[in-house]
Amino acid sequence: MTCTSSFLFSLRVSVGLQLAKRSVKILTLFAIFGFVLLAPKSISADPITLAPSSASLNTTAGGTVIFTGQITNQTGVPLSALDLFLNFSGFDPAVVTIEQLLGDPDFLLPNNTFSQVVNLYSVTVAANAPPGTYTFDVFIQDVNDNFSNSVTVSVVVSPNAVPEPTTLLLLITGLVGTRIAHSKLRRRS
C-alpha cells in the first residue's frame, strides 16, 4: 500500500465515521420528533383540565341526567369552584337544556391539584325528544381567562320502556298461579 492509498483509506474511514455519527444524530432527532407527534394528548399542558366521569349518559324523553367529573388546576394560582365557568356549544336547542351545577357547593382547588368527582352540569331532555344520540361540546374557563380542553359528550335518549304483551301475560299468569297455590295451602292447613 502506497502512501497515497493509505491516506485515501484513512480519509474514507474518517468520512464514513462522520457520516455514521451524523446519521445517528438525524435518527435521534427523528425519534424525538416522532415521539412528540405521536405522544398521547393527555400530556398536553392545559392550565385547566376537564375530565368527565363518562362521555355519554342514557336517559329517556323528559329525563334529566347529571354529568360528573374531575378538574385539574395547573394555572399557577388557587381557584375556588366559583371561579370556574362551563361553556357549551353544538347542542340541539329544541331537545337539550343544560345548566351548570359546578360551584354548588363551592370548594377550593389549590394549584397543581385535582378535584374530587363533582357534579358539573345537568342535561334535561325535552319531553317530546325522539330517541337518538345528542352530542355537544363543553369546556371550562376560569376567572383569569384560562381555558380547558374541549370535550365532546353525548346524551343517549332511549325509547320509553313499555312492557311487551307476552311479558305482561307471563307476569299475570305467574301472579294468578301464586294466588291459587296460596289458597290451596291455606285450605289444607
Binding site: 356549544s89 353544538g90 343544560i98 351548570q100 355537544f136
Partner: peptide
Amino acid sequence: KYLLSVQGTYEANNLTSGFAINRY
C-alpha cells in the same frame, strides 16, 4: 357570588345549534 347564565342559538355549517355560557 351569583351564576349568570346566557343561552341561545346560532347557525354554522348549515345547522342551528345551541350555546350556553356561564359566569359567576
